[in-house]
């Protein structure tokens, strides 16, 4: 705990994005605190991914502001930063885990180079050190060290996803965006990945924004959640509260539609 924990890490105010006449997302406001995991849930087309892309500077919103507290303690509007600063932030302080690992990895270079890329991007020029850190991070995401020179193409879906996570965490980011991180994985692999994510988040004190349509995933890893429908946030609260005592009719429908095995 330090004094910084009293201030939000990310402040989102009235963010909206339209695609022509259609609403991508509208009027989204929230604060994200250090060490907090926020889940954004909702059905397909509800604007989850649009919102995530707006937040992570991958898609410029039409309205609202997104302010991020830098390591210097300064609140900065991410869209007012120079492109160089923003890209630097993206590859040091932030991480982005794609649903499809192939989008977030370089499929034609080895696992070690994938993990080491961010280190080299911030100026590390010692091969032995970079490789050592890559092997260390592969271990932390449960990939055997003898796979360090294999290309991600030779990895299973679950391993690729874990590699993508390692690649993002190697620079010790403070904020990680995840777009359906467990999508496309079978349930047992999903469970292990969630376990891993949960322990990494706790261990590193990460903040994360996780987009998912899977309420079970949200329940397991998030502290708070936002429910979206038709581009708007219809309910927002602590995860357990939202799932156990949903207020909005749509959330009630969503919760009741979980298949009980």
């Amino acid at each position: 705990m330090n004094i910084d924990d009293d201030a939000p890490l990310l402040t989102v105010n009235g963010v909206g994005k339209r695609y022509g006449n259609r609403i991508g997302c509208a009027d989204v406001s929230f604060d994200l605190w250090p060490g907090e995991v926020l889940a954004i849930v909702g059905e397909s087309g509800s604007g989850k991914t649009t919102l995530l892309n707006c937040l992570s500077t991958r898609l410029e919103p039409d309205a609202g502001s997104i302010c991020y507290r830098t390591r210097g303690g300064e609140m900065r509007d991410v869209y007012q930063m120079r492109e160089a600063e923003r890209r630097f932030l993206m590859r040091t302080d932030w991480g982005f885990v794609h649903q499809n690992p192939a989008d977030g990895l370089r499929m034609t270079v080895s696992a070690g180079a994938n993990v080491g890329e961010r280190l080299m991007a911030v100026g590390e020029r010692h091969y032995g050190d970079i490789r050592g850190k890559a092997i260390d991070w592969l271990g932390r995401v449960e990939i055997a060290s003898d796979r360090v020179d294999d290309q991600p193409r030779a990895f299973s879906g679950g391993m690729r996803q874990r590699l993508q996570i390692a690649r993002n965490l190697v620079t010790h980011p403070r904020l990680v965006f995840m777009d359906e991180p467990t999508g496309g994985l079978d349930v047992s692999v999903q469970a292990r990945l969630l376990d891993l994510l949960r322990s990494l988040v706790a261990e590193l004190g990460l903040s994360a924004i996780v987009v998912t349509h899977d309420l079970a995933v949200a329940r397991l890893i998030s502290h708070r959640m936002m429910v979206m429908k038709d581009g708007r946030v219809i309910e927002h609260g602590l995860t357990d509260r939202v799932l156990d005592d949903p207020h909005a009719p749509y959330t009630q429908l969503l919760v009741s539609s979980i298949l009980q095995v």
């Binding site: 492109e83 270079v109 070690g112 180079a113 080299m120 091969y127």
Partner: peptide, 22 residues
């Protein structure tokens, strides 16, 4: 072009890393 403009040359070393690894 953006990478040249912003002097983002980490990727070039990824290539060299890959050579040494291989």
């Amino acid at each position: 072009r953006t990478m040249h403009a912003l002097e983002e040359y980490g990727l070039m070393h990824v290539k060299l890393y890959e050579d040494i690894a291989r």
